[in-house]
Write a protein that binds this DNA or RNA. Structure first.
Lengths: 224, 224
DNA sequence: CGGTAGCTTGATCGGTATCAAACCGTGTGG
DNA sequence: CCACACGGTTTGATACCGATCAAGCTACCG
């Protein structure tokens, strides 16, 4: 079968003929923009692989303040380290396609293929490392450093996957990006404009960026 | 043998007679205040169990800005999701005692006792959940909400472990707490003073707190 | 005692939030 | 095909929280 993420997702850990075990327990699901795939507080029942579209994971405070803890794009995995109750909500940024693996059955497959479990462990490590980077960003970086970090992260996500289709789709709105970076949407917008004025980026549409000076953005992102 | 953390650390997953397998591969290590146990960028060689004292994990920016991503106290585990290179530095807050498990040997023990591996997984889930809470704190909470969250977290750490020895040892300096909460040490100090004035806490010494009104602090911490 | 590390408090500054208005771009109905 | 409505974005003016700069203070240690 031809799956868009065959080579990136956890499936990449298995050979073609081994994949059938995963496929038999798997179901597809489509989530429309703005709809939640899972809710904070739910007991987790599935692990998911993002095939198309994108998700934001977020936690919220009683008065509506939100912190997006991660954006998940095609090839990413959700539910690695699941915990009851689920500590975040996952909501679709656009129409999003996922495949869902029910937990109990997934564990059976895990026991059969240790390569899967290993892959799983590196996913966790990567996730923890990414999340620590994000804490540094939220706790210590300025607005420009935050946006630059986001743009570099985004460019990295597209790398190798697609040909460098120069304009990158942002997927998220200014408000989503703000909730990810711990800023307000106005500050995000102003910082985009500032980067544009400085010639670091172009914004053909509000939803697409071109990185004109990636090196400089990388320097800014790391606080250099 | 009598280990202070026998009932909390990962060791709790094993019966007494099974512990010998862990003990034979384990070595003790003492780290003095201010000394690093491991450095950001190192290849990870050991997993550690904190027995006494405390550690701060942190990442830093080129210009010296620091974000403490976690404080580890007795019973906590370090190196769950290890990754090469290590994404953080671990430094002792006071003279700290740990036991160290070399990775390759640890994996052998893991294969023997699946209870250990399970325990390990719940540790990871807890860690990921905690880290997401901390992102919400860093991205969206006010100074008072941050310090209240820290105090509640601290109280939770001591709970059940020791008898409610009313004054809690802070272990960390104002600067460490500031680096954990994404604030400056002055703001942390002012917020302590403010809580004291409001009667929420007492500060018998600068290094010890008594929570006089834990409920109110919990409300503040959650943004209520 | 004096030195020093850590803490508190005060005065001021500045970056980002907040409040507010105008500006797209896209889809819809007349 | 145009007018309008609406979600999202940009830009401007102002406010405010926490950072920064700057003294003192306290406790502990030699």
């Amino acid at each position: 079968m031809s799956c868009k993420v065959r080579r990136q997702a956890i499936c990449a850990a298995l050979a073609d003929h081994e994949l059938t075990d995963l496929e038999t327990i798997m179901t597809h699901r489509i989530v429309d923009r703005g709809q939640a795939l899972v809710y904070e507080g739910d007991p987790p029942a599935f692990a998911y692989n993002i095939i198309d579209g994108g998700l934001k994971l977020y936690k919220s405070l009683a008065d509506g303040r939100i912190q997006v803890t991660a954006f998940l794009l095609p090839g990413d995995f959700l539910g690695i380290s699941s915990r009851s109750p689920l500590p975040f909500t996952a909501e679709a940024l656009t129409r999003t396609e996922v495949c869902a693996f029910p937990y109990p059955k997934l564990e059976v497959v895990f026991e059969k293929y240790s390569a899967l479990e290993e892959r799983f462990l590196t996913e966790v490590s990567d996730e923890v490392a990414a999340v620590q980077d994000h804490m540094l960003l939220l706790g210590r970086k300025t607005a420009s450093e935050r946006l630059a970090s986001f743009l570099i992260w985004l460019a990295g996500k597209y790398e190798g996957v697609a040909p460098p289709t120069v304009p990158l789709a942002l997927l998220a709105t200014r408000a989503d990006i703000a909730d990810y970076l711990g800023l307000t949407l106005e500050t995000v917008s102003r910082t985009f404009s500032q980067f544009k004025r400085q010639g670091f980026i172009e914004l053909p549409h509000a939803t697409e960026v071109v990185l004109r000076n990636r090196e400089r953005l990388e320097e800014i992102a790391t606080g250099a």
